[in-house]
Design a binder for these strands. Structure first.
Lengths: 329, 329
DNA sequence: ATATATTATTAAACCGGTTTAGTGAGATTG
DNA sequence: CAATCTCACTAAACCGGTTTAATAATATAT
């Protein structure tokens, strides 16, 4: 019976046809619990995520879901709400469910939790994680350094030279990598680094707004700003306009992330796109490979960002202004 | 053993303690598949949703997840991507999983699918559904009519009288209800309805932009506009500004939904808030009640909207202008 | 002290699949 | 024609829980 339904050999064609017909007739659906029990395999992936309603994670989960469903896997969601206590609970729940593998999507990834999950023998892939991999955890991350580099290089290529940087939460590795990209781009161009041109927001719109106000008062002659997130970039634009300055004519702005909103603000935001959905897909694909016992060629996948040029930094029609006079900042 | 672990009576305290100790020691976790098989109950809720990455559905799912996890249920996601063919498949998958109940979150809800799910005896709650309930399906919806009413009344109270309406996709009941609210508000105020002041977008920013351009050319003297979604409202603002007009001084704008973006645009958007997360929570709570065989007092829960006043319609400082001259539109 | 009622522990049946072992019929071969 | 080998089908064991029935131990009553 099981043989016939699952298309395995050892069943006469006629018998198989008859079984399938009857199954169809009383529309039989196999019981996943029973199958899971017998097979010790649930075709389920557990996803640990801080908050499903944030656009970033929602898009990530969408990518995961797409790939999982394509390969016949299901998703079971566990949200931590950012609390470490819930992280432990999430793992327990997924463990009881005997999920075939676990996907952790969080930059605050608790190293200890990762250890324990691995210790219990669950296939595991970590996405967008902050912590440098200690042991052979499979991880999917984005190349923040080169992303920032390309953003600043773009501003430089447009002739901007007084480029400020609005950093995100400095504790996150992502912030540090982007900052490094900013610094290296300036250095390679032969520009001196001005510490006053580096301020810190907290990845929020308000944070970007405040940071930009601070920047405008301490360095009034900046001609462009690179923000470590689109939200902060949008906040910065608001601050710039309140000062009566124009974007991009007076100050060019580049963001990071390419959230859906970025294309819709005025002016449309030039930004560094993170391939969020693709990260989810790839992570899911890797996890399924792990589950199926295949060898993973590279345990660390680093995805490249892409610079999306829109209106907020002057685009192709920038005149390559030559503001060479020094200001005090 | 089972008795001891689940805290049921009929076990000596000493024995129970010993069992729990051993269980703890070799950290035993019950197998959810086995339990599901024996109990014919999986503690799982199947969620059918068009697309998890849309902010609206993401927030809805967040609400559902919160309530489910509070009551010890898990979520299993099934996305339709809007295709009816996948809708059927989703149901099959959830059926195999023997989910305890199903939540459908979609305005395009296929009536036939609802019938079949009910026919199979699955507890079912439908959220944000378009179709008027034929039989006793439990549904959670939002009061679009009164929401629109309050928005237009607000504009009227600010002295605006030439109020235009940008409708959403007319096939959706939500659009029709909002349109009705618009009409009734004007009628109750004693204003005549001008068909030219009603245009149609498709719920997108671009749609709102185009609709507003059309409106400005056919009815140049409108003093305010109510859009059936925030996205369209934001598109409308862009169109208004391109004409050299100011918001809210020349034209006041009110949206619908209160997406996160609404508070962040310039000027902050006055809008009608839908309690999205709460809808999810309530729907989930109702579903669990159904699952547990409790009686549902009301099979149709209609949630009220809330007018959120921000800058885009002049707010409290509106001067109550009296533009009584007629224009040709 | 014996019979009975009460309670705690142990054993077995069941949920619905998968898989292996066992059985019978038909084909092949000496 | 009998012995063997295939192949298709049937029966039984197993996955890991829950629940009911059977059994053992203890307490209560006569």
């Amino acid at each position: 019976m099981s043989l016939a339904l699952n298309g395995k050999p050892g069943v006469a064609p006629e018998t198989r046809r008859r079984i399938l017909e009857i199954a169809e007739q009383l529309n039989y659906r196999p019981n996943a619990s029973a199958r899971g029990l017998a097979l010790q395999r649930t075709q389920t992936i557990g996803v640990i995520v801080p908050d499903i309603s944030s656009p970033f994670y929602a898009e990530l989960v969408r990518g995961v879901e797409q790939e999982a469903s394509r390969q016949g896997f299901y998703l079971i969601l566990a949200t931590t709400l950012g609390k470490a206590s819930r992280e432990e609970k999430c793992f327990q729940l997924l463990g009881e469910r005997r999920v075939d593998g676990i996907l952790i999507l969080t930059p605050r990834g608790d190293e200890e939790l990762v250890q324990r999950i691995q210790g219990r023998g669950f296939p595991l892939v970590v996405v967008d994680r902050d912590i440098p991999s200690s042991d052979g955890v499979v991880e999917v991350i984005v190349d923040n350094f080169h992303g920032a580099l390309s953003a600043v290089n773009h501003l430089l290529s447009l002739g901007r030279q007084r480029i400020a940087y609005i950093n995100g939460i400095p504790e996150l590795q992502a912030s540090r990598d982007r900052l490094r990209g900013y610094k290296v781009a300036l250095q390679e161009y032969g520009l001196e680094l001005n510490p006053k041109q580096i301020v810190t927001g907290n990845f929020t719109l308000e944070g970007g707004y405040e940071a930009m106000k601070e920047l405008l008062s301490s360095c009034p002659h900046v001609d462009s700003v690179f923000a470590a997130s689109d939200s902060m970039a949008i906040g910065a634009i608001r601050a710039i306009r309140e000062q009566g300055l124009r974007v991009p004519e007076d100050i060019a702005v580049v963001g990071f992330d390419d959230v859906p909103l970025a294309a819709q603000v005025d002016p449309p935001l030039t930004t560094v796109r993170q391939p969020i959905g693709e990260m989810g897909e790839i992570a899911c694909r890797l996890l399924i490979q792990l589950i199926e016992g295949k060898v993973i060629p590279h345990r660390k996948v680093i995805l490249q960002t892409q610079l999306v040029v829109r209106g907020s930094c002057g685009g192709g029609d920038a005149k390559g202004k030559t503001q060479s006079e020094k200001d005090g900042c």
